[in-house]
């Protein structure tokens, strides 16, 4: 059992464990902290996938900015959550069954994929050294994907204005 496999299982169990914690913890602040833990474990998984740039973005943007926004809103509303986290109702039971069915179907479908024990292109040391670096990512982003990149900046601007307009008491 090599180190990569050990790390994979460590991060995988951490990710799923803290994701389950998000659902089954009553206090919303505890839910949010559990989600932060899940994002950190997931960043570790991204590093194992040789996606270092995305792993850093994950920690900066998700675990940093977005979760601070969540915690800010939770504390602003000062929610007092009483009662069970979910009432048992026919629609909820149907939802849980549908989720379990989807998981079983996906796992069975993935098990049928042709197995590839090695990533064949990785024997090329030159390609491996540059894969997923911020230099290579930037070269692709600013040439091939320049228009979507600019469109996303516009989307963020619209979201800023929209959030202010929606959250304001009187416009």
């Amino acid at each position: 059992m090599n180190a990569e496999l050990v790390l994979f299982w460590l991060f995988a169990v951490g990710t799923i464990g803290s994701a389950v914690g998000v659902i089954f913890v009553r206090n919303p602040v505890a839910s949010a902290m559990s989600l932060v833990a899940s994002f950190f474990f997931l960043a570790g998984i991204y590093v194992l996938l040789w996606a270092h740039t995305i792993a850093v973005l994950q920690v900066l943007v998700y675990a940093g900015a977005i979760m601070v926004l969540f915690l800010f809103v939770i504390m602003l509303l000062s929610l007092t959550d009483t009662g069970p986290i979910a009432h048992v109702s026919p629609s909820r039971i149907a939802g849980a069954l549908a989720t379990a069915g989807l998981l079983v179907a996906l796992v069975m479908a993935f098990r049928k994929l042709p197995s590839s024990d090695t990533v064949s292109w990785a024997s090329d040391a030159g390609q491996l050294a540059t894969f997923g670096t911020i230099k290579q990512l930037g070269a692709v982003l600013y040439t091939q994907w320049l228009f979507p990149f600019e469109a996303v900046s516009l989307l963020l601007l619209v979201a800023i204005v929209g959030a202010v307009v929606v959250a304001k008491a009187r416009v």
Binding site: V22, R92, T99, V107, L113
Partner: peptide, 24 residues
């Protein structure tokens, strides 16, 4: 390396946990 299918099953499990939370 860890086979890609492990990561796909992890992603499926994560998606289903999220979906369960949205539904219940």
């Amino acid at each position: 390396v860890v086979p890609t299918v492990n990561y796909l099953i992890l992603a499926a499990a994560l998606f289903c946990v999220g979906m369960l939370g949205v539904l219940i």
